[in-house]
């Protein structure tokens, strides 16, 4: 599979800052992969998103060292508008993504396509499809500013998905959502992956990362400290040193080991816990 994103020895410093907030980062992402970016707040997750979508340095300026290559082309050689069609970015705070120039959810979702000059019939069809997909058809006539946090978060995702970009960079899409709304969003993201999209997701809900993502990038104080398949990263003792949330079942498993209950393997999904334990019980019964 071909690498759609390649980052080589990338460091970045915001214009007025003395310190680099991303330090010598190297990784690559295959087309169609679902990668989660994890790390505590202030670790550089959102800045990394901004580097991949070209806002660093196109918009924020500052000092960028190393290489960021998207789809075979250096990020500095793109126009910001071209990147906008290739990479869809869903904001961390849905309150700041809403355009403010549209008075209904339908028009808000249509806004991006309008700006690309897509024919009206096509826009209407695409918006209808996406409203259904994200389950916000009932909100179509509402003013985006009258929506709850959770509703806005869905509108924000819809407004990006409708543009059909190859790469989706999604920054904490479920922070304001209830558990069922959160799973709905992850189902939409999974659907995007099935359609061949490359997905980068910043998220603190590790249970869902364990369930859905292929790979993890772990950021700590601006450095990429771990990367690899989800299971490998969560079961690596090194992960514990960064004081980042675990999937709940992994935390339970590690605590069980601590109190002397041995496990066959480290589970990362709830369903795996009986298997990790059960063999042990069976052996004890022998």
């Amino acid at each position: 599979m071909k690498n759609i994103i390649e980052i080589k020895n990338m460091s970045y410093r915001y214009p007025v800052s003395d310190d680099f907030c991303l330090k010598n980062i190297t990784f690559s992402i295959q087309k169609g992969a679902f990668t989660a970016i994890v790390g505590n707040n202030g670790a550089g997750k959102t800045t990394l998103c901004n580097a991949i979508r070209g806002f660093v340095p196109h918009f924020y300026k500052g000092e960028l060292a190393g290489e960021v290559i998207v789809d075979g082309k250096q990020i500095v050689d793109y126009q910001l508008g071209q990147l906008g069609e290739k990479i869809g970015y869903v904001f961390q705070n849905p309150f700041s993504q809403i355009s403010g120039v549209k008075d209904s959810v339908f028009n808000e979702v249509a806004y991006g396509l309008e700006n690309l000059g897509v024919p009206v019939d096509e826009i209407i069809q695409k918006v209808e499809d996406v409203l259904k997909l994200v389950n916000i058809e009932h909100l179509r006539g509402k003013n985006p500013f009258e929506l709850s946090g959770g509703q806005r978060q869905r509108v924000a995702l819809a407004a990006i998905i409708v543009m059909d970009p190859d790469i989706l960079v999604i920054d904490e899409p479920t922070s304001q959502l209830d558990p069922i709304g959160t799973e709905d969003i992850f189902d939409v993201i999974r659907l995007m992956k099935e359609r061949g999209k490359t997905v980068l997701l910043v998220e603190h809900k590790m249970d869902l990362i364990a369930e859905y993502a292929d790979n993890i990038l772990v950021l700590h104080e601006g450095a990429l400290v771990m990367q690899g398949p989800v299971r490998e990263v969560f079961s690596d003792p090194k992960y514990a040193t960064f004081n980042i949330q675990y999937p709940h079942v992994t935390e339970v498993a590690l605590n069980l080991i601590d109190i002397g209950v041995p496990l066959k393997f480290i589970p990362i999904r709830n369903e795996e816990l009986p298997k990790a334990l059960k063999m042990e019980w069976e052996e004890n019964n022998d």
Partner: peptide, 12 residues
């Protein structure tokens, strides 16, 4: 009102 939204382990 939703103090846990977007919080990491340190925040929690």
């Amino acid at each position: 009102d939703e103090p846990t939204a977007g919080q990491d382990k340190v925040g929690l």
